[in-house]
Design a protein around this nucleic acid. Structure first.
Length: 264
DNA sequence: CGACAAGCCTGGTAGC
DNA sequence: TGCTACCAGGCTTGTC
């Protein structure tokens, strides 16, 4: 489930498992997930090296390769990591790193919409991709959030999900933020009141951090969260309403009409 | 069988 | 009129 909280959890997982192990072999099972790199170049860039540290920006995870560059991992709609030993690689493994300690790190992706590659520098990549500030970055304070929204004319859900404005929020967590802030997903950004912008910012911080604290597992999140009720006609966990589906720029948004303000 | 699913990218266009 | 910012559609493959 690869939005910011999920990727943050994947980062913790990577940090606790595959760092500092020498890479012995790299197997690319489907080149569709490779981003601007050949299988050979990926193998040459990784083999006999170690992953020394990691960073995250929005939905992207980077692992520092000893000597040179960063391994780029993006999980698309269905990617995950699995560190294992003494069994077969999991289903949907697209790239498999094998370490000299006998362990393997599988990058799995069922829909293959993710990306694996090598980049020179994190900041450079972020700039090239036009990624906005990470939604949980300490620098991205209320004032920065307000600035990021100012002058926008789209709908608030699309804006929260726009990686060039702020990086990390996708379909599920945009719904959660709007649900907690009591804002209708189709509200025009330029119609938001000052107080509502503040509510949204608080909800964004709170939802993302809480989701990370819950290891991004919906079952462990607060009962007042929408996440386990994202289906038409489900009971709203905060008021007596019924959850509805709404189309927002081709994505399905779920919200409670009872406590999220009506809007066009 | 068609609709849909947590991602991003692209081309055409609505709006300043 | 020109330039952006926005949105619909496509990619992929499995499930309901």
């Amino acid at each position: 489930m690869p939005e910011l909280p999920d990727v943050a959890v994947n980062k913790q997982y990577l940090d606790a498992t595959a760092l500092h192990q020498q890479i012995e072999e790299v197997e690319v099972r489907d080149t569709l997930v490779l981003s601007d790199i050949t299988s050979e170049a990926l193998r040459n860039g990784l083999r006999s090296h170690t992953l020394e540290s990691s960073r995250r920006h929005g939905k992207y995870l980077f692992a520092e390769i000893s000597e040179d560059g960063w391994l780029l991992l993006h999980f698309g709609m269905s990617g995950d990591l699995d560190y294992f030993k003494g069994r077969d690689a999991p289903e949907y493994t697209q790239v498999l790193l094998s370490f000299t300690n006998g362990y393997h790190l599988a990058y799995t992706s069922r829909r293959k919409l993710g990306m694996v590659g090598i980049v020179e520098a994190v900041e450079e990549f972020v700039e090239e991709q036009d990624l906005g500030p990470d939604a949980l970055s300490p620098d991205f304070d209320l004032a920065a959030f307000r600035d990021a929204l100012s002058g926008r004319r789209g709908m608030v859900k699309s804006t929260l999900m726009n990686q060039e404005i702020m990086a990390g929020i996708g379909n599920v967590y945009s719904d959660e933020i709007l649900f907690q802030a009591g804002v209708h997903p189709r509200t025009a950004v330029n119609d938001l009141r000052e107080e509502t912008v503040k509510d949204l910012y608080r909800a964004m911080q709170d939802v993302l951090q809480t989701a990370i604290d819950c290891k991004a597992k919906p079952d462990e999140m607060p009962a007042t969260y929408l996440i386990r009720h994202r289906q038409e006609d489900a009971d709203c966990p905060r008021c007596g309403g019924r959850v509805k589906r709404v189309d927002v720029s081709g994505r399905s948004g779920y919200y409670c009409p009872c406590h999220q303000d009506q809007a066009p």
